[in-house]
Nucleic acid binder design. Structure first.
Length: 237
DNA sequence: CGCCAGGCCGTGT
DNA sequence: ACACGGCATGGC
């Protein structure tokens, strides 16, 4: 019986993952061909619609700048012009140049070498880069470098609030990024290491899929795969 | 037209 | 620790 919905936050999140998986199927995600394209997209999509990111990526492709070497030789003002469609270009262009500078200085310009470093150190290093916060750092770690870390975003936060997935701890205000990823780790982080990254990958992709379907935004969440069962279940402890 | 998108940062409590 | 405004463009 899949209708009944579990009480503990971790069980609820697993249930949600399963419902989304059976609704949307395998996502195998991040819409990019190479790790460096993932990184470009992670920066460019900050508070920006993906459609606009695609325009910028097209411009970069035409300029031969979808690679580390290509971006390295691009002057920052030229980079600004190319990524203009995805907004915030006065911040994002220098931020991308700073990433390449870090990669050059600390990893000989090699994403392969960077990926070989331990996760926690990499995350700290990413977080002190300009224009890199928790979500961008985790997206780079997971999707570009293959490290097993959960990624949360605005979609997941809205889904949580809409469906009260985390109502066991006192609901004070909105849920922090760290609370979202901690719960995801507790719920889905017990997988064998070899498959862990793909589990987090899939779950995040599914939250984006249902998020783009407007879950958490329309009043009744019409057609939301999480809706029916959650209506008559929620908070009684 | 106005609203807002797969955040992040500096500043002020 | 948290709230808030600024950052910029383009799709809908």
């Amino acid at each position: 019986m899949k209708g009944a919905h579990p009480r503990s936050p971790t069980a609820r999140l697993r249930w949600m993952h399963d419902r989304l998986a059976e609704t949307y199927g395998p996502q195998h995600w991040w819409p990019a061909k190479t790790p460096f394209e993932v990184i470009l997209g992670a920066y460019l999509t900050q508070n920006t619609a993906w459609k606009a990111v695609e325009r910028s990526l097209d411009n970069l492709r035409s300029a031969g700048a979808l690679t580390v070497a290509g971006l390295r030789r691009l002057p920052v003002d030229e980079l600004q012009r190319l990524i203009r469609p995805s907004g915030f270009y006065t911040r994002k262009a220098p931020a991308l140049k700073a990433f390449v500078a870090m990669l050059d200085q600390e990893f000989a310009g090699s994403l392969r070498k960077m990926a070989a470093a331990p996760t926690s150190g990499l995350r700290r290093r990413l977080l002190v880069l300009p224009g890199v916060g928790p979500e961008t750092a985790d997206a780079i770690l997971l999707y570009a470098l293959g490290h097993p870390v959960p990624v949360a975003d605005e979609y997941l936060r809205r889904i949580f609030e809409r469906h009260k997935l985390a109502n066991a701890p006192p609901v004070r205000g909105s849920i922090s990024y760290e609370a979202l990823t901690d719960l995801t780790r507790r719920a889905l982080g017990t997988t064998p290491a070899a498959r862990q990254a793909s589990i987090f990958n899939e779950f995040h992709a599914l939250t984006v899929a249902v998020g783009k379907a407007q879950c958490g935004r329309t009043p009744r969440c019409e057609g939301c795969p999480l809706e029916a069962d959650l209506l008559h279940s929620t908070n009684d402890s």
